[in-house]
Design a protein around this nucleic acid. Structure first.
Lengths: 349, 349
DNA sequence: CTGTTAGCGCATTCAG
DNA sequence: CTGAATGCGCTAACAG
């Protein structure tokens, strides 16, 4: 029987390095060197090889290269979110922009991966741990997810976005986060500096590090300034407008003379504002409000919301940089990063 | 000198098929068969191999597999748009959802790729034609772009979204498009059926097939019904609100008794509505308006816009299906698809 | 500077 | 049913 090609298209055989070398009249080794930087190759040979490659339309087989090099030249960005959220939350766009800029500059291919169902996720693990990817960037992993661990155990470099710990970093899970606590401090300090006396907070949930961190920042400043951070000034709930609304109603009942509210998220702040409006409190005259995240709506609402902005794109670039270092084996110490947040002054505070 | 590992992480060597086979007490060949479907393998051997693989945490090296198989098990979706557009235009989300559903079901990894700058695009071509991808899905390629051609010349299956021709399909560029012309017919017919007599159109640009197709649909119906499609009823421009606004002002001046406008896009329709409002025309009482695309805003504006909806997600699934067939070498005839659009009735017409 | 050699890890012949 | 042998296409080490 004749030769049966196993490639998908029964097309004519693709040129290999071998054929290029043959046409150029050199050995495969020389051809390889000529095509990769051209060190230790005579100008004559280099020229010949390049021409031959050109004429043949040679495309190096990356699978072969990966096999021998042990690296693929691409890294994955895994998003385990519904595509709805992925495409609606500006957060992802910004992160990806950051990641992409770093990777593109280094000629590394970014492989974006959606993994929603658990089946897709195991598929992804297979893909990644099969060495098709040199490393993985993880976004919005629920805490306690086994996925980072299985990636790690496959020997894959992993950097994730969000709050890790010294220990998790030491165990291999490098991470990058925004300085949520510091940002909260910025906000509360600003409130105090502008003369507010009773600064309450409607904080995010306990089970999320962001929620805890931002609340901690509020506490930091209050304790440092007034020596006390009374729990009667704290409301908690999910990162939703509803939380802000209801928390504020309770707050106003309990502490009628509250004159500032730090919301643990802009979404919460939206609810805070509405409750304030309904209760006849003017913003910022009677009550100042500061949010967190700087969502697009923040600038558009009335009054424009003063808020704390995360350096999202910078988080992306930093994640990518750390991953590239990790892949290269460069030591990075510490193996995590906390990036500064920034107060965006508008008129609500 | 000792052995120098070239892999990125100087970690312990990953288990190979060889080591699995050794632990299981069988040969590499048997181990391979056991791990891939297990045909021609005794239950005993199969069991042993699986256990060994499990114990060793064996992950097959996909680069090696790709090399021998000539296939990687992943396909690319290349988006040459700014990430801004990618993440704001619901179009992409829907396409990706469709593509992803098909691919995930077949266990094929979807590799999402951004290629904005030309440098990134050549990078992508290298990546894809290096056989890291079994095929490519292309979205929003400007006409006359050389990229599909270079992908094709590398022997890569390509399916693109948008209007191709019989010839382009024959030359290897398979495509999937919405039936823009048919959708336009639907819209114009509806206008006529509901008693409108002077149906004008503000069409998209000449240089885009969508623009031409939708205009052609308008012409089809007018010619079939009234025997004439006078050019005084046509305005053209880009897919922008501005086009709709200015086109409508000119239209009203030229043909004051126009009683229906078919806009070549919802964005255009937005401008049409505004011009109508400013000129004191009530919608739909005086003038009926129909758009195209069903963008999210269409349902929210006042009056809610009747429009033609593209089967975006279906386009994605169809593209993926065609690509998979193409990769498998299954004949597909014709090598393109035109998917039906649908009239979404709201109150503007 | 160059050709030769030796694998990278795997799936698949082909004998047994 | 199984093991041994072959080669996918490439890079790197080595000896010229």
């Amino acid at each position: 029987m004749g030769v049966v090609r196993r490639t998908a298209t029964p097309s004519i055989a693709r040129p290999t390095l071998e054929s290029v070398a043959a046409l150029a009249g050199v050995s495969r080794g020389t051809a390889s060197r000529a095509l990769n930087g051209g060190v230790n190759v005579s100008p004559r040979a280099l020229e010949a090889v390049q021409q031959a490659a050109e004429r043949l339309g040679y495309r190096p087989n990356l699978a072969a290269r990966s096999l021998v090099l042990g690296r693929s030249g691409s890294v994955g960005l895994m998003v385990s979110e519904s595509d709805d959220r992925l495409f609606n939350d500006p957060f992802f766009a910004a992160i990806i922009r950051g990641v992409h800029s770093v990777l593109a500059a280094q000629g590394v291919q970014l492989v974006l991966t959606l993994a929603q169902t658990s089946g897709e996720r195991t598929n992804m693990v297979r893909f990644a741990s099969g060495r098709h990817l040199d490393g993985i960037l993880l976004i919005s992993m629920p805490g306690g997810d086994p996925l980072p661990g299985s990636l790690l155990s496959a020997g894959l470099p992993v950097v994730l976005c969000g709050r890790g710990t010294r220990e998790s970093a030491a165990s291999g899970l490098w991470w990058v986060d925004a300085d949520n606590r510091g940002g909260a401090r910025l906000a509360v300090q600003h409130l105090l500096d502008s003369g507010r006396r009773k600064v309450a907070t409607v904080a995010g949930p306990r089970y999320l590090a962001v929620g805890r961190d931002r609340l901690a920042g509020w506490r930091d400043v209050l304790k440092a300034t007034t020596g006390d951070a009374p729990s009667e000034l704290v409301e908690r709930g999910d990162f939703l407008a509803e939380t802000g609304y209801e928390g504020t109603r309770r707050l106003l009942e309990r502490v009628p003379d509250v004159d500032a509210i730090f919301a643990g998220a802009d979404l919460i702040a939206l609810g805070v504002l509405q409750a304030l409006r309904e209760c006849g409190r003017r913003v910022p005259d009677d009550v100042a409000v500061i949010g967190f995240d700087d969502i697009p709506a923040a600038a558009r609402i009335d009054p424009p919301l003063t808020t704390v902005k995360q350096p999202i794109e910078a988080i992306g670039t930093r994640m990518a940089e750390m991953l590239m270092h990790r892949i290269a084996g460069d030591p990075v110490d510490p193996p995590w990063a906390i990036l500064p947040t920034e107060l965006v002054l508008r008129t609500s505070a």
